[in-house]
Design a protein around this nucleic acid. Structure first.
Lengths: 251, 251
DNA sequence: CGAAGTGTTGAAGCAAATCAATTTTCGTGG
DNA sequence: CCACGAAAATTGATTTGCTTCAACACTTCG
């Protein structure tokens, strides 16, 4: 299953049904991703990069080194996710690195401009993708630091599972999960020791297990309740259709 | 001083020097803000609002009611800040409310589209404003939950002071600060009791005092060091000029 | 003037950090 | 393939920052 679907197309198509021509253009633009090893920085903080990166396979993250040496992970990037989607080249306010081995495509600003100019629908889909990106960021802000750590982690798992499903990267209850406990700690603002205890707790409660680099959801419904997870913020795409319909009725 | 400068124009002009015509258009679009009382909701969560709101005077915030009744404040809005800057109408993922009394202008999507179409420079300035918005959001995520609560609060004060300065809303060391301790707690994810103790600590250290609804910075340099505050993320505007210069040299 | 909202203080409890030691897993070269 | 060293996971003991609960003072406003 993995690799069988272009994740970028899957994601954008969910926002605005793409034409065949648009699919072909996207397919061409992402046809030759580079294969990066685990823990490889591909955007440095402060670097001005005009090009767009697209994660095609594996996990990457955005992070920043804080005063005192502590690392803070500010976002996870999964297949179909774009980096620096802003239409303006600017200095990166945080670095980006792979977590496990990754496939990352690079689209030059020039090609991106062409893509957007060529297809109104595609331009709109990209705008929606950016909106979704922002929604996730705000959700992280709301999630982190609120309630017990086990709930926060459970929420993160629910989000990840949903995002992966949207780009057809899971179908069963398990998926590859290359984060170390220390990296999870850097994400949630917890010590790795405490992450370990949280994982044990969730395993004992029969919600989630993490063996090797494989995460398994034991009881999705209970996990979502436990995490207080509401997938609405990830489903801007379907919401969009509601809005379009409303407009037609109004106009 | 307060009210003497249109904060939206001040902000956008910092990103891309505006033409006289653009200033006039912005002035006209924000000429009749409505005056809202304190603690007044003006965007409800889930509401689909196509129009753009601009805070012209006072503080507002974005918030969400969490499972369990707790309120989480996800952003502060100050003079010159725009809400729903996305170019797409969509369901709000969090509510917006005034904190103290506020002046809020409303720009219809129609007028906004005209503004953007009329002036390339203005369109670019708005894109930069959105970039700045995102940078602040990411900074909040990095700030909250990292290090002691007193540092987090100090950082918030530094950011607020800098943002207000950029729109000419302060010149001395003091400024109006209408937040209750409970609202500060909802912002930082702390109990109001602990906020109270943090405030006392910062006062004892001679960094910040908060009397009535007026905040005074006693020692800015020390406060910034204490907060580990780096204003870079707020200065995308000046950075922009660097990038433009680079381009000219390259091209 | 009374009532509600806000700020202040103290005491007790708890979640998570920290420190430190041990085991397990993993990657690599012999 | 096994042996080795390094990275990651696990466990226990201790400490601390923050929460919660509760009472009380102060302010603001109807």
């Amino acid at each position: 299953m993995i690799g069988s679907v272009n994740p970028l197309i899957a994601k954008l198509d969910q926002a605005c049904s793409l034409t065949g021509a648009a699919r072909l253009r996207l397919e061409a633009a992402t046809a030759h991703p580079s294969s990066l090893p685990a823990h490889h920085d591909f955007i440095r903080q402060g670097e001005i990069c005009a090009d767009l990166h697209v994660v095609m396979e594996g996990f990457a993250c955005r992070y920043r080194i804080m005063h005192g040496g502590r690392r803070s992970i500010l976002g996870w990037l999964m297949p179909g996710d774009m980096l620096d989607l802003h239409l303006i080249p600017h200095a990166a306010d945080c670095a980006a690195a792979t977590v496990g081995p990754c496939m990352v495509a690079r689209i030059s600003r020039h090609v991106l401009d062409e893509l957007i100019a060529s297809d109104q629908n595609l331009a709109e889909a990209i705008a929606w993708a950016r909106l979704g990106e922002e929604a996730i960021l705000r959700q992280w802000l709301a999630n982190m630091g609120q309630g017990p750590a086990s709930r926060q982690f459970a929420h993160l798992v629910c989000e990840t599972f949903t995002r992966l499903r949207m780009v057809r990267r899971v179908n069963g209850p398990s998926f590859a999960f290359p984060f170390t406990q220390e990296e999870l700690g850097d994400t949630l603002g917890l010590s790795s020791v405490h992450v370990n205890r949280v994982l044990q707790q969730l395993r004992e409660e029969g919600l989630v297990t993490l063996y090797g680099r494989m995460l398994t959801i034991r009881d999705l419904a209970r996990l979502e309740r436990y995490a207080e997870f509401d997938p609405a913020y990830l489903q801007l795409a379907s919401e969009r259709r509601l809005i379009m319909d409303e407009r037609k009725e109004a106009g």
